Simulated assay, not measured.
Amino acid sequence: MKALIQRVSSASVSVQQLVVGQITQGLVVLLGVEATDNLADSTKLAHKVAHYRVFADDQGKMNLNVQQAGGSLLVISQFTLAADTQSGLRPSFTPAARPEHALACYNAFVSECQALGLAVATGRFAAKMQVSLTNDGPVTFLLQS
């Protein structure tokens, strides 16, 4: 399972021109689920995202996690993160999880983040979405379970 996280000052996601999720300060989490991923991977990755220190402390060092910084999450399913791009000029999506399996892992990830005390907004699974964000830094990391 992969999570591309971006530290943002604001972000929103829309479906058919309607905003379905938005946050101010926090992390945008683009979540990719592979066929070999399971619910334990969702729990492990949620814990990592929740505790990953990418926000500045009083000395300007990345020592605070999203909750310590008073931020929230915007979690968006992104099956293209599971693509195999090692060869050729077109991605292969063979490693990506089937939609029903990916949805279960996605929902488990969101639920675990909420159980850890985070405010979580989401996109709409499997929908065509438009994501708007202001990347703060810019700061972007790829985390894996």
Rank of each mutant, 00 (worst) to 15 (best):
S42T: 09
S42R: 11
G32P: 00
K44S: 14
Q16S: 10
V15S: 12
A35I: 06
L18C: 04
V29N: 01
D41Y: 15
S42N: 11
G26S: 11
Q17W: 06
G21Y: 11
V15A: 12
Q17I: 10
L30A: 00
L27M: 12
V19M: 09
V15P: 02
K44D: 05
V33F: 09
V20T: 15
I23A: 11
E34Q: 07
L45S: 04
I23F: 10
E34W: 02
L39W: 09
E34V: 10
Q25Y: 04
V19L: 05
S14P: 02
G32L: 00
Q16F: 07
L27P: 07
L31A: 09
G21M: 14
V33L: 05
L18K: 05
L45E: 05
A35F: 08
S42K: 05
V20K: 15
A35C: 04
V33R: 01
T24P: 02
T36A: 14
G21E: 07
V20G: 03
N38W: 07
D37C: 02
S42I: 07
T24Q: 08
T36R: 06
G21S: 03
N38L: 12
T24L: 09
V19T: 14
V29S: 01
L45R: 00
T43V: 15
V29C: 06
V29M: 01
V19N: 15
L31R: 01
N38D: 12
A40H: 09
V19K: 10
V19R: 14
L30D: 08
G21R: 07
D41P: 09
A40C: 12
E34Y: 05
V29P: 01
V15I: 02
L18Y: 07
T36M: 14
V15F: 04
I23G: 07
Q16L: 10
Q25G: 11
Q16W: 14
G32N: 00
K44W: 10
L39E: 06
Q17T: 05
Q25S: 13
E34A: 08
V28D: 00
I23H: 13
L31I: 01
G26K: 08
V15T: 04
I23Q: 08
S42A: 14
G32A: 01
N38S: 05
G26Q: 05
N38I: 08
T36Y: 09
Q16D: 15
L30E: 00
L18F: 08
D37G: 03
L18V: 10
K44R: 11
S42L: 04
V33S: 00
Q22A: 13
V19S: 12
T43D: 06
V28N: 01
G32H: 00
E34D: 11
L39A: 11
N38Q: 02
V28K: 06
A40N: 12
Q17V: 03
K44E: 13
Q22G: 09
L18N: 04
A40K: 14
D37M: 02
D37T: 10
L39Q: 12
Q25E: 10
G21H: 14
E34M: 12
L45I: 06
Q25I: 15
L30V: 00
V28P: 09
V28I: 09
S42Y: 13
V20W: 10
L45K: 07
V33M: 03
L27E: 14
N38K: 06
G32K: 01
L45N: 01
T24M: 09
S14A: 15
G26R: 11
Q16N: 15
G26Y: 05
L31Q: 02
G32R: 00
V20F: 12
E34K: 11
T24G: 12
V15M: 03
A35W: 10
T36L: 06
T43G: 14
Q16H: 13
